[in-house]
Design a protein around this nucleic acid. Sequence first.
RNA 1: GCCACCGUAGCUCAGUGGCAGAGCAGCGGUUUCGUAAACCGCAGGUCGUGGGUUCGAAUCCCUCCGGUGGCUCCA
Length: 586
Amino acid sequence: MMQSHKKQPKAAQELEELRHRMRHSASHMLADAVLRMFPDARLGIGPPTEDGFYYDFDVPRPFTPEDLESLEADMRQAAASDIPFEHSEVGRGEALELFSLQPYKLEVIQDIPAEETITTYRHGVFVDLCAGPHVESTGRVGAFKLLSIAGAYWRGDERRPMLQRIYGTAWESQEALDDFLHRLEEAQRRDHRKLGRELDLYSVSDEVGPGLIIWHPKGALIRSIIEDHWRAQHLRRSYNLVYSPHMGRSRLWETSGHLGFYRENMYDAMEVEGQEYFIKPMNCPFHIQVYRSSKRSYRELPLRYAELGTVYRYERTGVLHGLMRVRGFTQDDAHIFCRPDQVEAEVVGVLDFTFDLLRTYGFEEYDIYLATRPEKAVGEPEQWEFATASLRHAIEGLGLEYVVDEGGGAFYGPKVDIKIRDALGRAWQCTTVQFDFNLPERFDLGFVGADGHEHRPYMVHRALLGSLERFLGVLIEHYGGAFPVWLAPVQAVVITIADRHLEYATKVTSRLEEAGIRAHLDGRNERMNLKIREAQLQKVPYMLVVGDREAQDGTVALRLRSGENPGPTPLAAVISRLQEDIAARK
RNA sequence: GCCACCGUAGCUCAGUGGCAGAGCAGCGGUUUCGUAAACCGCAGGUCGUGGGUUCGAAUCCCUCCGGUGGCUCCA
């Protein structure tokens, strides 16, 4: 159960409610249309979603794109006929009778608690089991469109039958629908997989394998800037940087419990001199080794070990997606070992660090989730209560809105997840802060307290950016490929108008490079127009055109990727402008 | 992994049973140009893989590999 701690203005809430009703009604009209196409179709469920609606069907053959067109035409006809939606309450027996030919509906009815009333909505001949609410009549569904077809397991369970799902969307006006479709197009333009290729940032190769990222020079440069900044920030916040190997003996993973609980995500063992080794899916066991390398005193806690640790996890082929979901990735990982009395301050420190770091990249909006104890869990209830309260206090103390994900915690501890939204409106999890009651136990971690006795430290896993691969993917879409100057692989391109300007252009480029600017000289024997176009497509922030006038005056003709054209500018002024941008991380 | 769709030159794509094509990129040349694509030429492909049907397969069928949109799972 998700319990929201968010507030919305009333007007926005009413609009959302209207869209919700229109989408709900549109999904009924879709199901009605499908039944006309396939009278024997069995209906799954058809709820509204954040951006539209879907409906699941068990049909004799999969839908085709042409089917979508004729179904949509059928729906338009229904809308034109303006048939009223009629609500009624039915008894349980009556409901079972009414939907006797619809096994999925029967299953839903059986799951409705006895004390709840069962309701149906009818328009024309179509009746659906439905809690509602709906718009008054089919003419009031607004502007709608069917979007796509997909397979979906009944009740999301891969052991149950796969139904055919049709996705659609509905909005209060044609304008709002067009807006939405425009947003989808914009999202496609910003797709990190497309930009990744166009800007030559990374690739995946069939020969290397799916889900394994090959960073090209420009992508690698952006990544290394992010990493450098990350390390510097960690040092400022009293983290200790460590490095750990990519594999370890089976004994390590047995002790950690990964072989017991996480093996399906791990690659098979490799044998070395009769011993089994596993490639790491997580960094924690290694950081624990650092902790255990000497006897720890309460005086040295908290200890914060951080590493850009590359891990490999088996992911099913169907879930791989560009940089967002891969098989080999680098976590910006850290493990904090601390005393109980330090826990809350540590969590506050991590959250503060997170927002500080994410703000650097222009992320200001987050979805925050507090995930609590699941049914199957290790650790004492008091520990869970204490840790969960620490997380809650930390979030609330910072005045943040959050959602409680009841029972959504890991088996080894409660956690806070923070998601940022990409250009498609999909929320991507980046930050995660997780308590771990399991590993300190398994590795028998301890510290000597002021009382001279052994105590168990608290352990917190945290990743702020999540994985560099995913974060870069989100960043590419966030900026639409137009990276701010401090991240841009090429910050300035010097463009010659004719070959005779090469000498001056070379001098300009060297001056820029000496000033610490990533400059590139485009001295090709091509027309200036072409070079500007290419720099523009590569989203280079500064273009410095040099011709006769500039060579004579010691200036450059400045052009920005925004299309602004400030014109002739002294080189020194351009350099300081660039340096200001870089310093301000613009 | 499952459902649907897709895979033709580095990229974007045309070709749906009868001699593999275009634009861009690449290479060679001409051109020396003032704010988003100069011109001419050349080269480039076992049509993802393996098998089958056929006189003949990029095209039809099957297998596998990879991708896309979803489902499940997740940083």
